[in-house]
């Protein structure tokens, strides 16, 4: 009997909850498991569209109750758990051993669960009621910064993507990710989980292609509020950080750490959430 001919997947961008080809029609070739695949290569205009989608989604996302955001983030973990074979396969295709792939997928899912539980605690842990010396009620508490552009390191493709994006969205931000070109499959598989996990369209936008092409557009974009950049290229980081000053984006910058870092305890924490919240202080008189 002749072997069944498999159906191949077109590797698209994920913008505003839809899988789309690059507006330019361009792709980039990458070798995955000895096969040449062509993934969508995002352009400046795709980045622009993604920011627009992220901005549009932001008000709705941040106004959801923190409990609801937590449920949705948890749902993402559920979806990923049921699809872990697919994730492991994707990582395997990109070259990971079966054990390494299993470990990375488990760590990614567990990290998402961990952050799901943070959603409704961020405000409690980062708020203060301030004993001002006047008859006023005074509270400082965090709010999401807005639209955040993320440039994750190339590896570990899934775990680094999860570790950077999820803490940012769990406080109510929306993200546009300029993913590494090295492993588009992990990014796209993640997009498919996001698309089916009740995460509102536009909250997480994933662009495949060359970060070097897209990231500067995001760093300079006047409607992006913050930038999270991980790279081993110091000059690249410096260029992005400088572009980001035009509208005074909040910038977190790091040299890409060794891969082992991402599975460790330091790769998750409240300090992954905090750089992307704004502290708002509200005053009100207390009198009759």
């Amino acid at each position: 009997m002749a072997q069944r001919l498999s159906v191949r997947k077109t590797l698209k961008l994920f913008i505003g909850g839809s899988f789309v080809r690059s507006e330019s029609g361009r792709t980039f070739a990458c070798e995955l498991a000895g096969q040449t695949v062509h993934a969508a290569r995002a352009t400046r205009k795709d980045a622009r569209d993604a920011v627009r989608a992220a901005r549009a989604a932001w008000a709705g996302w941040r106004e959801r109750s923190a409990y609801n955001r937590g449920q949705i983030v948890y749902r993402l973990a559920e979806i990923m758990e049921t699809r872990r074979d697919q994730f492991e396969q994707a990582l395997g295709i990109a070259g990971a051993s079966a054990t390494a792939a299993q470990r990375e997928v488990s760590a990614s899912i567990d990290r998402i669960v961990w952050y799901a539980g943070w959603c409704d605690k961020i405000e409690q842990v980062l708020s203060t009621k301030n004993p001002v010396a006047s008859p006023h009620f005074n509270v400082s508490s965090p709010e999401p910064t807005g639209v955040v552009a993320v440039v994750p390191p190339p590896a570990p493709a899934l775990l680094a993507l999860v570790s950077t994006c999820v803490p940012i969205v769990c406080s109510g931000n929306t993200v546009v990710v300029a993913a590494s070109h090295e492993d588009p499959l992990a990014t796209i598989t993640f997009a498919e989980a996001v698309a089916t996990a009740d995460i509102p369209a536009g909250v997480i936008n994933l662009l495949t292609g060359y970060a070097a092409e897209i990231a500067p557009t995001l760093a300079a974009h006047m409607d992006v509020n913050a930038l999270d950049v991980w790279s081993s290229d110091g000059e690249f980081i410096e260029k992005l950080a400088e572009l980001a000053t035009d509208n005074l984006k909040r910038v977190r910058r790091h040299a890409a750490p060794r891969e082992i870092f991402w599975s460790g305890a330091k790769a998750q924490g409240l300090d992954w959430i905090e750089p992307f919240v704004e502290i708002k202080t509200v005053w009100h008189p207390a009198g009759v």
Partner: peptide, 8 residues
């Protein structure tokens, strides 16, 4: 009338 503002 806001009491605090008035007293201030």
């Amino acid at each position: 009338v806001d009491a605090v503002g008035l007293e201030e």
